[in-house]
């Protein structure tokens, strides 16, 4: 069972998580037929910007986040934005819609796409609840081991209670699978790998 403090923390996070939506006029653009390279680039940029803005709004509401050193706040967000967005894409995937409508326009190689789709598939098989998604997003953002963090202990203090709540959620919703919590945490290094690939890909685009 959750303690009253844990329950209210969970309710609070779920409330801000449910408000985490990108504006409809941005997501609608994906459905428009637009196949020029420049058009695709603009849509992708606008979506990415919008996702980051929404992510920052969610993060600002995480209990204690605004008490962290300002530069640490930025380092946490910079380090986690790509992972949080990939993570979010496993739920409802506007990114995969974008890619499936415009298969070749980004010249993204199969070595990058295939592991990503396998990842999304394996997440689907975990049958995660909304609470688990929300908590894992918060846990990804509040990772104390990101680059350039000065006060790691303070970040740890914010992340730990969320891990406790996530563990309880896993026991509650997946009583038949005692490994569920470990399985979820095991996805996080995979997300980091995508983050590295993403950075490499951006760099190669820039060079080209």
């Amino acid at each position: 069972e959750f303690t009253p403090e844990q329950q209210s923390l969970l309710d609070y996070i779920m409330d801000s998580y449910s408000k985490q939506q990108i504006p409809q006029e941005v997501s609608k653009k994906l459905l428009h037929e637009e196949f020029s390279a420049e058009g695709n680039f603009l849509i992708l940029t606008e979506m990415a910007t919008s996702h980051v803005q929404v992510l920052v709004e969610f993060t600002k509401k995480l209990p204690g986040f605004q008490t962290l050193d300002h530069e640490d706040q930025i380092a946490l967000l910079k380090g986690s934005a790509v992972e949080a967005i990939y993570w979010k894409a496993t739920i409802r995937s506007p990114w995969s819609l974008l890619f499936s409508n415009r298969p070749n326009s980004f010249s993204i190689s199969d070595e990058f796409i295939t592991p990503m789709f396998n990842f999304y598939k394996s997440i689907g098989e975990l049958k995660m609840t909304q609470e688990e998604y929300a908590l894992l997003t918060a846990i990804v953002i509040l990772s104390p081991d990101r680059q350039y963090i000065k006060d790691r202990e303070s970040v740890e203090r914010l992340q730990e209670p969320l891990l406790d709540i996530l563990q309880k959620c896993c026991k509650l919703h997946h009583p038949d699978n005692p490994q569920h919590f470990a399985c979820l945490l095991g996805r996080l290094p995979e997300l980091r790998t995508f983050n590295h690939h993403h950075a490499e890909m951006l760099m190669s685009w820039r060079v080209n």
């Binding site: 603009l42 980051v52 920052v56």
Partner: peptide
């Protein structure tokens, strides 16, 4: 779109300060 050429850090800094629509 004014944010098209803005880097990730700039978007984050702006959003953190609540300056969405500038």
């Amino acid at each position: 779109n004014s944010s098209t050429n803005m880097g990730l850090e700039a978007i984050i800094r702006k959003a953190l300060m609540g300056k969405y629509d500038e």
